[in-house]
Amino acid sequence: MKAPLKRSNAPIFWALFGAGGMLSALLGPMLVFITGLALPLGLLLPADTMSYPKMLAFAQNFIGKGFIFAIIALFLWHAAHRIFHSLHDIGIHAGTGAKLLCYGTALLGTLIAAYALLAIGF
């Protein structure tokens, strides 16, 4: 009997890439507008939208925690996968080191996000 085919880990990374790509496609532009432009420039939204008490309450809320974690982690995994696969296109031979660097950065960011969200408490 033949040995079973070695299972690839590619679908995991691809699923994270796809989930992050979908999330950033659906919400990315508005998130950037809200956190990066509207609030710093004082446009449209109430000035205290991201005040400390409000953001703390949001980050302590179960749904808010999940939202923040999903946005940061999936955006990172999406970008890591896409950058890793583009290295070849710009003439860099992408080996194990590049893979570790790309996915490792995403993993590190995910762990820091998880740590911060746990430190903020419930």
Binding site: G20, G36, I71, I72, F75, I83, A116
Partner: peptide, 11 residues
Amino acid sequence: LFVAAYAGVLL
């Protein structure tokens, strides 16, 4: 690159 950088800002 921008998705990664923005995620970094949020992080």
